[in-house]
């Protein structure tokens, strides 16, 4: 009897939760607009789909205990039913948890990592747009070596990152301070994070790290505040302000922006 009521309610609330999840599925991680973001969102939703019944099983069981099994008086009386093992239950629990975790390791973990690593192979990255990103305390500096641009800025003179949509971009991430008066190697760990990309990569002093991204639609900080470069690893008192606006534009807009930046740089030098 207990078994039937508990089980039926569990199935019903799990089904309702899955249906609700399905309805909001594309927004569970708020706002993502890159190929990497699609991988993360897919993994997130897959895990949620699989874990919802597990989660609700325990939650519902705790509520069930409080409702159905609570003692009506505080006096110390043994429970009527007594047992210390149940091979079927422990067997299902242990094999189930092993199977579920092996599944998660194969999919999404291994499957998604294979996709991520494949996107980083040199053979598929021959015509990328290269953006050199330099993290210093506390500023993001963007340069476009293919266009001989050393530091791109907007009309206010603030660092600006602009990338074309649907184009593979290779970010080369380094941490040092080109403006330091005597020690350009002075640098700490930063983390290059665009929330809307769905990935962050730490920038380590003395090393070069790479991140490959294809943005899947045009957007800017004005259209969604998650479209911004944000340092995600604490890097000193300036850390909260180590952010930079980002614009994802069409190919032709990108071209005219590059031309403007080249003119600006020529005028400045």
């Amino acid at each position: 009897m207990d078994f039937a009521i508990f089980g039926i309610v569990w199935v019903i609330i799990s089904a309702l939760a899955e249906w609700g999840l399905h309805r909001i599925g594309s927004n569970t991680m708020y706002f993502l607009l890159s190929n990497q973001g699609a991988i993360a969102l897919h993994a997130f939703n897959f895990l949620t789909t699989m874990l919802t019944p597990v989660f609700l099983f325990v939650i519902w069981y705790l509520v069930w205990t409080a409702i159905r099994y609570h003692a009506d008086s505080p006096e110390s009386r043994p429970s009527r039913v007594q047992f210390n093992k149940n091979g079927l239950f422990t067997g299902i629990w242990i094999t189930g948890s092993i199977a579920l975790n092996l599944l998660f390791w194969l999919h999404p973990t291994a499957a998604d990592l294979e996709q991520m690593f494949a996107a980083q192979l040199p053979s598929v990255n021959k015509n990328d747009l290269i953006v050199d990103v330099t993290a210093r305390q506390w500023e993001w500096i963007f340069s476009y070596p293919q266009y001989h641009l050393t530091q791109t800025v907007n009309a206010n003179g603030e660092d600006e990152l602009v990338i074309p949509v649907h184009k593979k971009v290779e970010f080369r991430l380094r941490s040092y301070d080109p403006f330091h008066t005597y020690d350009v190697e002075a640098g700490v760990i930063h983390s290059f994070w665009v929330p809307a990309f769905g990935i962050k990569e730490d920038v380590i002093p003395g090393e070069t790290r790479y991140e490959y991204i294809v943005a899947t639609r045009t957007a800017s900080y004005q259209t969604n505040p998650e479209v911004r470069v944000q340092c995600a690893e604490v890097c000193g008192p300036g850390h909260p302000w180590m952010e930079s606006p980002l614009r994802i534009v069409t190919a032709s807009q990108f071209k005219s922006w590059i031309a403007k930046q080249q003119k600006l740089q020529a005028a400045g030098s």
């Binding site: 997130f44 991520m116 962050k200 990569e201």
Partner: peptide, 23 residues
């Protein structure tokens, strides 16, 4: 603790982790 454990499964998966790490 169940909430902590379940959210830990998400964090164990690198693609999700790379987004929510340090947040």
């Amino acid at each position: 603790f169940l909430h902590g454990g379940i959210s830990g499964v998400y964090l164990a998966d690198p693609p999700v982790n790379l987004q929510v790490h340090d947040t």
